[in-house]
Write a protein that binds this DNA or RNA. Structure first.
Lengths: 209, 209
DNA sequence: GCGTTGCGAAACTCAGCCGTATCGAAATCA
DNA sequence: TGATTTCGATACGGCTGAGTTTCGCAACGC
């Protein structure tokens, strides 16, 4: 593989350059198939090549194995940043959960979440990507909201932020997954947030804040 | 297939009876493989037969397809009934979460939970089994605990029981799955329960009950 | 034009699994 | 003993997919 020198001094390999379009098609096809419910283990290079309108060689030239490809494909999933940051903490939390709920109503998102939940056991690098791409950004957003509430006094000053995040997100996922009905009711976000804000214990005096 | 009449009047088929031992080995092998992280789609009849020390025919004679076998195998998973019912509601809830935490530390349980979470999208009958075997019994137990607390006044009388259950279970799963460290800290159950009991809002007067 | 590299398509070998069939041996009852 | 059914083992044909190779063509720099 000889390289050539461009006018800008950037080394570039000789010969026909690799097609960025093909690369995009491959990634796109991978995400499509995963989004249709194909698991990572059932995902075949041939099906990706066929869907992408690409030869298998074109895939193997870029990725040496399936996991690498899937990791790269997931990396292109833009986290649809759910930055509410609007009014009260309650409203922001409800908005956050509403985003999750909305996402969970899409088949594609559910399939990809399934991969995150289940295949992460066997593919640590996938788990890593998911944390970095999806979990962490949202954790950061919600953490900021909660911290703000602790400062303004809307929330307890000694609130355990990680725990609060887990309660909210976990409840949403749990209810989405195991609800008797397929669809979750529209007021789920409000109900989760309100129960979490109130807590389970009785309130000796209710100051209606 | 002729049948014969035993002395007790129970009809029984002629010829060599089916081996219950083989049946148990097959189910056992299936659970073993699933517990090792093999997904349902990757699970092959041949690997089960080999693991069980059994001919493929012996499997096909009993189950016509893989899903049936897996469903039956899951049905033998005894729900290790976590019936605390001891002292305060707080203690019972902590005990309940501790059971979940303990289970989640076993690789086998995690793999089987992954199947429940992920393959349930494609195999509704599996999802059904899981709800019936695992989710429902526990929901019943925790629901009873919460109801008791609502009666004794340890909990709010207007508590949304389903929501409370979702907050507790969901938080546990979320933290087990996405915690930075691989292992969850030992005091996780207490922290979850206490945050959930207190709620996020500040408490105007704290009666230390 | 020439050398080089990428392209899609097709063919190839190799492996694994499916579902069925066949075998001799074993277990059961009449 | 004989009829019947199951047992584990093995083999079979067929399919799918992995990963490689080959082919003719296209795209680039020189």
């Amino acid at each position: 593989m000889k390289t050539q020198q461009t006018a800008e001094g950037v080394a570039r390999p000789a010969g026909r350059p690799r097609s960025e379009k093909a690369e995009r098609s491959i990634i796109e096809a991978t995400l499509e198939l995963l989004g249709e419910g194909i698991g990572v283990s059932e995902l075949s290079i041939e099906s990706i090549a066929s869907r992408a309108g690409v030869g298998k060689t074109t895939i193997y030239r870029r990725w040496s194995n399936k996991e690498d490809l899937v990791v790269d494909a997931l990396a292109t999933l833009k986290p649809p940043i759910p930055l509410p940051q609007g009014g009260t903490v309650r409203d922001d939390l409800v908005t956050y959960l509403r985003v999750i709920q909305e996402e969970a109503s899409h088949h594609r998102t559910r399939c990809i979440m399934n991969i995150a939940m289940s295949d992460s056991e066997r593919h640590p690098r996938l788990a890593e990507r998911f944390r970095e791409l999806t979990v962490e950004p949202r954790r950061a957003v919600v953490t900021a909201v909660l911290r703000r509430g602790m400062e303004t006094g809307e929330l307890r000053a000694d609130l355990d932020v990680d725990m609060a995040l887990a309660l909210l997100s976990g409840a949403m996922i749990w209810l989405t997954k195991w609800s008797h009905t397929g669809d979750s009711p529209a007021d789920l976000p409000e109900r989760i947030v309100d129960e979490a804000l109130k807590g389970f214990r009785p309130r000796p005096s209710t100051p209606e804040l």
